[in-house]
Simulated assay, not measured.
Amino acid sequence: MTPTSLIGGHVFVSGGLATGGLKYAAEIHAEVVQVFVTNPRGWALNDGNPAEDAALRDSGIPVFIHTSYMVNVGSPDPAILEKSAASIRHALRRGTELGARGVVVHTGSAVTQPREAALRGLREHLLPLLDEIPGTGPDLLLEPMAGQGNMLCAAVPDLAPYLDALDFHPRAGICLDTCHAFAAGHDLSTEAGVTQTLDALHAIAPGRLKLVHANDSKFPLGSKRDHHENIGTGHIGQDAFATLMRHPAAAGVPLCIETPGKGERHRQDIELLKRLRDAPAPGA
């Protein structure tokens, strides 16, 4: 029997990771949650609240952490690299404390330097962090970007040199954002395109897909613009998500929305994905 993909979303944690996060998860009917453990647009690192940590950890709902948007492990700036490494280390520690399944990190930009130099910096700063992850800790999930600027990883083939720089470390997983992939040129609006994309991902990184950011795209294929849209209302369309969940590479992989709006709009996106997941496959 094919494993069932849990479906949820990034939750608001005002009031605390558990107090706010679990309340919002219940409101939107999430089966899995993603949270920030720091200000997503800053460098400040903070310790958790032990009581909130325990409540979220003991809730039984699977948890993923997203690192700060400031993180860039491809930066030519030594100060940014050091801050990025510290931020990822902190998120991995907090992930261990929360019993999280994974910590998502954007794969970064080379900015003004050659890609080869950026990959050397990536190896120097990220590989030691992977070695530090305890056996009970979360995997580090690499999220390719939409292709804007001098991004190190956007299209699926970009993952090969990226993972090679990390010696294909066993704790390096993948978070596939459907909007990013579509913007980078993968035509997820068709069944053939979804299949080709996931086949290519599996060929490069078999078994490493650990999370899907399920987002429709506001802009057309290949736009290199990272603008999410609600499920079925963008250029990808709802059928793509049903095809994705039926693909062997995504079997049992959780889906987490990061779509516009909040509350009722997020619940609608999640319920739509659940209907697509639970509907019989064509020809069944």
Rank of each mutant, 00 (worst) to 15 (best):
A172G: 09
E258W: 07
F36V: 12
C153E: 02
G108D: 11
G193A: 10
P134F: 12
V253L: 08
A18G: 06
N46T: 15
L276H: 06
R171A: 02
H186A: 10
L209K: 00
F12Y: 14
L255H: 00
L17P: 06
N72C: 10
L81S: 11
V103Q: 03
G42V: 11
T190A: 10
T178G: 10
W43T: 07
A250P: 02
T233M: 13
A251Y: 02
H10T: 13
L122T: 11
D269H: 08
H90M: 05
L272V: 10
H227M: 10
A155K: 13
L273V: 12
E258L: 05
L142M: 15
L127N: 08
L140A: 08
G20T: 09
Q34H: 13
L142T: 02
G147Q: 01
S14H: 09
G283D: 02
H186Y: 03
G21R: 05
S223K: 08
E258M: 09
M1A: 14
F12W: 14
R275W: 04
A100K: 03
A18E: 08
L176H: 04
T233Y: 03
L126A: 13
L188Y: 05
P40C: 03
D239E: 15
K224Y: 03
T190K: 08
P157H: 06
G207T: 05
A251Q: 00
L159C: 05
N72Y: 08
A250R: 01
A30N: 13
K262V: 07
L142P: 01
T19E: 14
I236H: 03
I174M: 09
L152A: 04
C175V: 08
Y69T: 06
S5K: 00
K224W: 00
D216C: 08
L188H: 05
A44Q: 15
G9A: 15
L17Q: 07
L211R: 01
G237W: 11
A250Y: 02
S5V: 09
A242S: 11
G121L: 09
E264C: 01
A284W: 12
V156I: 15
G173P: 06
P220H: 09
A192M: 04
